[in-house]
């Protein structure tokens, strides 16, 4: 900021000179830490209050039998909440179902998504089709759940009718059948999230070096060969991100499953977070729920570590490779 100062010069004093606080070393340095700290502080404090503080609570809850009724105090339980998990069949089945569900979702979504992206890439209608395809992603998962429940309905559902008409289904019900229910919820997830995979792949395809493709073609490679040996290796980092993100979302959001089956029939679609929801908010066994939540969080942190590694690599690596 400008100041007014009196400056001593040889032969006298010059009054009222405009000066600025010129501190040379400050210009070439980042802003001082305390200043940045103050900027950071509100967000960090708020985040700590709504994430670290609950985490402390979660650990506390895993070690206690939590009483929700007023006046009663929590009972120390030691590691009972955890040791009981080891013999809890539903807990173990919940993990298995979660992996089965994710594996089904991811394989179909990656397959379809890559196919859509490859076909759309440089297509005449690319822009408009992409815009149409991303509409399901904007829908609230609850609404998607209801919509598919409506389509699967045994008396007036159009998809039920369709499956019957092509002879896949005899009758009965889709969501009430142990075999079909899993595919039904997978189909809903596939409908909503394949477009995201397609968009990520499309972004990756735009970065496939054209000269490599050309060189390959000049050498006589056909479209299949071209895709598998040039495009696909360039796509791996993008697919990895897509898989990790979708896998995380599969157990982050259970809205659709809660609406459509609630984990049934006979626990066929009871993936672990759904079981956690039941234990905590239906039976209100919060201590046990906390222990289950803790195991889920551990997996999240593990995946997060992998993800941050990947985050730092792909786009940047590709960008720098191109610059050099």
């Amino acid at each position: 900021m400008a100041n007014i100062a009196n400056i001593d010069v040889a032969g006298g004093v010059v009054r009222g000179v405009r000066t600025i606080d010129y501190v040379p070393e400050e210009f070439n340095h980042r802003p001082p830490r305390y200043y940045l700290l103050w900027l950071m502080l509100p967000a960090i404090l708020l985040l700590a209050a709504i994430s670290l503080y609950p985490l402390v609570w979660l650990v506390y809850m895993t070690l206690h039998e939590v009483q929700l009724a007023p006046g009663k105090s929590d009972v120390w339980a030691g590691i009972d909440n955890f040791s009981r998990l080891a013999t809890d069949k539903k807990f173990i089945r919940g993990w298995l179902t979660l992996f089965k569900y994710s594996a089904l979702c991811l394989s179909v979504e990656i397959g379809l998504g890559v196919l859509v992206a490859v076909i759309l890439n440089n297509n005449r209608f690319e822009k408009i089709l992409v815009t149409i395809f991303l509409m399901p992603m904007m829908m609230a998962p609850v609404v998607a759940g209801f919509l598919y429940m409506f389509l699967y309905n045994g008396t007036f559902g159009w998809y039920f009718w369709l499956l019957q008409s092509i002879g896949l289904l005899e009758g009965g019900s889709i969501l009430g059948n142990r075999f079909w229910a899993m595919f039904a919820i997978v189909a809903t997830d596939v409908w909503q999230w394949t477009p995201l995979i397609a968009l990520i792949t499309l972004a990756g395809l735009k970065r496939v070096p054209q000269d490599q493709l050309e060189a390959h073609m000049v050498d006589g490679a056909g479209p299949f060969r071209n895709f598998f040996s040039v495009a696909l290796p360039n796509l791996y980092p993008f697919l990895l991100i897509a898989i990790l993100l979708r896998f995380m979302d599969n157990f982050r959001f259970i809205d659709t499953i809660l609406i459509m089956t609630g984990g049934g029939p006979a626990n066929a679609t009871k993936i672990l977070p759904t079981y956690l929801f039941d234990v905590s908010f239906k039976f209100f066994e919060l201590g046990r729920g906390a222990a289950i939540a803790f195991t889920l969080l551990l997996l999240t942190i593990l995946l997060g570590l992998v993800l941050t590694k990947v985050f730092e690599d792909p786009t940047r690596k590709i960008r720098t490779e191109r610059e050099h």
Binding site: P54, M61, P273, L276, T300, G304
Partner: peptide, 16 residues
């Protein structure tokens, strides 16, 4: 990782 935590898991302590 705060962002990636499963909503149900976060909700258990948050609810209390």
């Amino acid at each position: 990782s705060t962002r990636m935590a499963p909503v149900v898991a976060v909700m258990v302590p948050l609810y209390v």
